[in-house]
Design a protein around this nucleic acid. Sequence first.
RNA 1: GCCCCCGUAGCUCAACUGGACAGAGCAUCUGCCUUCUAAGCAGAGGGUAGCAGGUUCGAGUCCUGCCGGGGGUACCA
Length: 603
Amino acid sequence: MHKDKFKEQFARATAAAFRKIYPDIFVTVGDSRVFNENFIYENLETPRDPKMGRFALPVFKFALLLKDKPPLIASNIAPAAMWFFEENNIEPLISIHAAGGFLNAKTDFKILAKDTLQTVLTKGDKFGNSDIGRNRKLLVEYSSPNIAKPFGIGHLRSTVIGHSLRRIFKKLDYDVVGINYPGDWGTQFGKMIVAYHRWGNKDTLENEPVKKLLELYVRFHTEAEHDDDLNEEARKAFRKLENGDPETVSLWEHFKAISNEEFNLVYSTLGIEFDEVIGESFFNDKMEAVIERLEKAGLTAVSQGALVVKLNDPNLPPCLLKKSDGATLYVTRDLAGLIYRWEKYRFYESLYVVGTAQSDYFKQALGVIEMMEEAEQLSPEARMTGRVKHIDFGWVKFEGKSMSTRRGKLVFLKDVIDQAVTLARKKIKEKNPDLKAVEETARMIGVGAVMYSQLSVRRQKDINFIWDEVLNFEGETGPYLQYTHARLCSLLRIYNDDGRRLVDYSLLDKEEEHRVVELLADFPETVTEAARLYDPYPVASYLIRLAGAFNRVYQRKDEAGRIDKIISADKELSWARIALVRAVQTVLKEGLYLLGLKAPEEM
RNA sequence: GCCCCCGUAGCUCAACUGGACAGAGCAUCUGCCUUCUAAGCAGAGGGUAGCAGGUUCGAGUCCUGCCGGGGGUACCA
C-alpha cells in the first residue's frame, strides 16, 4: 500500500519527539503506541476544516499513558518534532502546530503542488490507479432486471452502483467480471402465460409490447384477488414451461426477445457495460445437482410438502429448494449460480448489488452454502463462504410513494430519461445556442442527471425519486460536474499549449488554489475508500468538492473586485494556472468515468 | 408478534466509523456577466441532532428504554 510521504515524515518526527519528551514512559512501554511511527501513522485524522491542517493527530487518548493533560502534550510535542528536523538535517515537508489536544500538520505547499500536479499530468487518467487488486478476480452482479417487466427506476440503482463499482475496482487492478443476471424464469412467467392466453393474442404485442406485457401482468394480479383459480393455473403453466412444453417455451422466448430489446436500448443509452449476461434459466439443468449435493450433505428436509434446508439462525425461515408441487424457486437457481460461479472463477470476492429488501434472502442463501461447505469439510481455500457479499442499497420510492410492479405503479426509466434529455436540450438552446452537437450533448447531460441522482447518497440510504430534484441541473448534480468539466475544456482550448514546459508552482499562491491542489492529492485515497465501502458515493461527493473548489478559483475576485482570470498577460502565472486547470480536468473526467457519466467538452 | 434499517435546517442529504465551533445543495432573500461558458460565484437567514437516560476526557456517532417511519417475515423474485 502506497504511503503518503508527508504523513510518514510527521510520524517519524512525532514518534521521536514523544521518545524525547517522555523518556521514562518510553523505557517502560518500548517501541509501541505513540513511540511507534506506524502507530502514529495509523491514528492520523483529517481535520474537519482544511484550514487547520492537512492532517492531525489527536492526543487525548494518550493522556492516561503519558500522565499529562492533552493540550500540554500537544504543546510539548509540536516544537520537539520541529526540532527533530533541524537536529537531523531533514528538510521538513510539513509544519506541526499544537491546537488544543491536537497536533496539526500543514504541508509545504510548493512541494505538495509540484508532486501532485506533476503526477496528475504525467499519469493522466491513470492517476489514482493502484495494484491492490492484482491477481484478484472480482465478480460484480448488477442490474438483473426481470424479463417481461419494464425497466423501472427501481432497477436503475443496482445498475448504476454496480456499473460504477466495476470501473472503480478495475482501476485498482482487480480482474473484474461485471455480470447481468436477468430474471427470465420463475412463477411470474406462469402468470404471464396465463394472462396472455386469457386476455391477449399476437396483435396485443404489436405496439409498445413492454407496456402491453405490463398491462397483462397487472391485470393478472387484480383479477387474481378474487379468482383463486388463476394462481393455480399460473403454477401449472410454469410447470409446463419447466417441463419444456414447446408452445409454452416459444411464448416465453417471445417475451424474452421483447424485453431484451428494451433492456439493451436502456443499457446503450446509459452507457452500461457487462462482461457476462447469464439469465436465471441458464441454471435450469444445474439445480438437480445442487439439490443432490445438499441431500448428500444431510441438510435437506421435507416440510409441509416442500423441500427445505433449515438454517442455524432461528430468526430465519427455512430456505425452500422446491415447492410442494415440485417446482423450483429463485433461490434454487441462485444457489446453482453461486456454485457455478465459484467453480468457474474461484473468485477473490463476489458482489451482489441487490436491494436491502433481499437481505434475509441473502442470509438464507449464503447460510445454506456455509452449512454445505462445513458439512463437506472443505478446506478453507475450497470454500466461498466469506467471499460472497450482498452489497445492499436502500429502497427507491417515487415522489414519496412505494412503487409496485404488480399494481402497475411504477415509473419507466425510458420516460425519465426522455424528460431529462428534453430539458437538457431546452437548456442548451437557452444557454449555448451556438453549440453544434446538441443532440449528443443533451443526451449526455440528461442521462448524467438521472444517473447521478442514484449516486448522490450513500447506498444504504433510501432514495426518494423526486422529479423536481432529478430535473434540477444546479448545485450538487451530474450536470454541475459536467458543466465544470466543459468549462475547463474551454480554457484548455483557448490556451492551447502542450503542457510540457517548466512551471513555477509557487505562483499558485491563493488559498483557493491551495484547496484545489489538496483535493487533487486526495483523489487516489478517495477511490480506494469507495472500493473499501463498496460504494461509489465517496467519489461522487469528492467530485462535487473538487468542482466547487475549482469554480471558486475561476471566479475569485481580486482586491479591486475584478475577476482574477486564469489566463492573463502574466505568462508565467498563466502557465501555472493552466497546469492546474489541466490537472483538474483530468481528474474530473476520470472521476465522472468511474461513476459512469460522460464528460462533455462543451455544453 | 418477531427480526433488520432509518429519524440531523422548510426539503434532500454530509460529517473520514468516538474528536475541534454539526456542514453542503435545493428552496427564500441580496449582490456579481464591456473579452477565460452565470448549468457559475459571493453573502444572509434557517439547528433543543425524535424523546429520556447511560458509558466516556469527549457522543449525531456506542449502550438501554420509549415514540415515529420503512423493509422483511417458507411455497414471489
